[in-house]
Amino acid sequence: MENMISIQNVSFKYRTGEGMEDVLALDNVSFDVKKGDFVGIIGHNGSGKSTIAKLLNAIYFPLSGDVLISGMNTKDEENIWKIRQKAGMIFQNPDNQMVATIVEEDVAFGPENLGVPHADLRGRVDEALNMVGMYEYKDKKPHELSGGQKQRIAIAGILAMEPECIILDEPTAMLDPKGRVEVLNTIKRLNKEKNTTVVLITHYMDEIVDCDNIFIMNNGKLEYDGKPKDVFKQVEFLRKLRLEPPFATRVSYEMNKSGINIKDDVLTIDELAEEICQLKV
């Protein structure tokens, strides 16, 4: 299958100022994301995961190596706007990415910038709002919405640009549990129904248990690239990277350690309950 995103031997440094050593934020990272996949990028603070997001959107450019978005190199100045249209980006703070004073006008902001003809705009906006389940809020003002709702509007704003891929940089970090669930359900649905490629960057492991693929970052290096099931049971390995495995995995791990035989790759509470019920006393 075609690669939506391809990162090839990318290194990146942040300037820290006069006389100080520049910090290597990314150190020779390579990975691919296939079209239609739902992938997670996870790592503790300062692991370089947010840097990747900004590289994917041509906000930063790699020091060495290449970032390709459906075959287009971000270094190529001509491609920047096409890349930003194809790979939409959602940021952490729901408040600071809303531009307009009315919800529907905010959703229209992206396509307006692309110069979508007036006749098509209304349709795009309505469709995007329906997709995130916020159509009835179209005339509301941003400050009348909850954090989760604002974040869904931000997603609608990206959808209205008809992207092939959505990159979300810790979209749930500032939300309450209800808002987190709303946002996660929305992006999962997008991935299933519209076959949009999703790159979810987060530090919550339980948000990415049903991803197609996950990438674990640590100190600017890619530590793991594979299925979530295979890595989540390696509790020791994860803890070394200062990551906390999902609750269910932790329980099954501790149970195994204290001599109760149970499958070690359970990821969700439901799976865990199922397994525990099958235990013979």
Binding site: R84, P117, H118
Partner: peptide, 15 residues
Amino acid sequence: MEARCYRGGENRTRL
């Protein structure tokens, strides 16, 4: 705004 392709008023359409 830049991530959403904002490039000033030129060629912008309006909802």
